[in-house]
Design a protein around this nucleic acid. Structure first.
Lengths: 226, 226
DNA sequence: TGATGTGAACCCATTCACAGCC
DNA sequence: GGCTGTGAATGGGTTCACATCA
């Protein structure tokens, strides 16, 4: 075991690693082999010290006076994030959103693959979305056991989200991405991440309201100010 | 001017207000008129002190020894977030995601309404999604001017996201929600929020990887531990 | 010389604990 | 007595600045 993952990566830094990874991927595609924290910071829209601190959590992979080897950095980030393996995911809910997710190329491009979609609506069962046949929610256990799925996506309406979460927990899912606008109640050991469109819109609404009122509230969460 | 918005609400607190708002909405529906910070904290999966601090940014609307008036709190949060008006939004990109968004009930339920969808693909133009006819990207200015739109949603593939952002900025959009997996380059005064599915998945991947490796990494971002 | 890696300083957010009020 | 509102303490994340090394 030459290089074991020493310390846990702080949440904030963790959220930026995929951003760096995406940029590094573009650099690889452009045959760039070296990159400095300054350049990377420019592309990512953060400052260079943050980039260096973030990358330092992975280990000391840079070369002083030179920068980072792009390919090697890609490899290290992927390894740390667990992206050197393809994670199977299961989607609960085959409505508009579930279908869009199943068809979303970004999922497979990033090394995830949808191994199952379930719904309770019998009219949806048997239809094929994103190359996967929709099955009944009762078959969740069969799907997750057969494919050792540990990541579940909730794409149901709000009123069924908790029920979906319970079902996922029951079959031993470890991580849940929740697209329903609800706070889920799950055991502590289960990871939940929420993606809430309306919530984000409401935050934008606040900033637009501030703008309209004349009070400045520049909140650039993820963009380059150029 | 009886109660003007004094201080700017911190980002972190701002992100929780929509969560409280949703819960309060449920309470209203259940004819609950009073709520304590303790109860609200329970529903939201945070601690009571945080709820009180968050609500204190709105003003001192609670009653010591009693709690908060649910209806009044709903009104105050809505007012502060600018939700007492219906914001028109425009969607750029009429692919899978754009269509799913246009059809997403949560948008209209929360007081936003899609007034336009544009695309560059002529085969999509003229089709109707979510009750709105898809128009050509060149008509963006006409749409936003006519309806004084200030919020735009980017639902294009990654390689066209920057172009979409430029177009939105050009027509005077103030806030952008970006669903493309890219860091956008926009003027400082434009608000950008990113919703990146693959990024979130990669974070879950990290936690699952940690779990598989035996290192604990419980990151519950938005759930109740019950 | 030039860029990394990192202690130290700083700043924002969370939590504590209690004064103040109903 | 009970719950809010908020200073004070704590903790995490960001930024600074520089020692360190190719």
């Amino acid at each position: 075991m030459p290089d074991s993952p020493r310390r846990r990566i702080p949440e904030a830094a963790l959220g930026r690693l995929p951003v760096y990874l995406r940029i590094l991927g573009d650099l690889v595609a452009g045959d760039i082999v070296q990159v400095s924290s300054d350049q990377l910071a420019g592309f990512a829209g953060v400052n260079a010290a943050k980039v260096r601190k973030d990358l330092s959590y992975l280990g000391t992979y840079g070369t002083r006076g030179v920068g980072y080897d792009v390919q090697f950095l890609v490899y290290q980030i992927q390894r740390e994030l667990g992206l050197n393996q393809s994670w199977p995911v299961v989607i609960v809910g085959a409505g508009n959103l579930g279908q869009a997710l199943a068809n979303y190329a970004g999922i497979t491009e990033r090394g995830f693959h949808v191994v199952g979609i379930v719904d309770k609506d019998t009219s949806k069962i048997g239809t094929v979305v994103g190359g996967v046949r929709v099955r009944h929610a009762d078959e969740l256990q069969a799907i997750t056991s057969a494919k050792s799925v540990s990541i579940g996506i909730i794409a149901t309406p709000a009123q069924h989200a908790q029920e979906a979460a319970d079902a996922l927990v029951r079959v031993g899912i470890g991580s849940i991405m929740n697209f329903a606008p609800t706070v889920l109640s799950v055991p502590r050991e289960v990871n939940v991440r929420k993606v809430d469109l309306a919530l984000e819109l409401q935050i934008l609404s606040y900033y637009e309201q501030c703008r309209a009122d004349g009070r400045v509230a520049g909140g650039d969460a993820d963009s380059v100010s150029a």
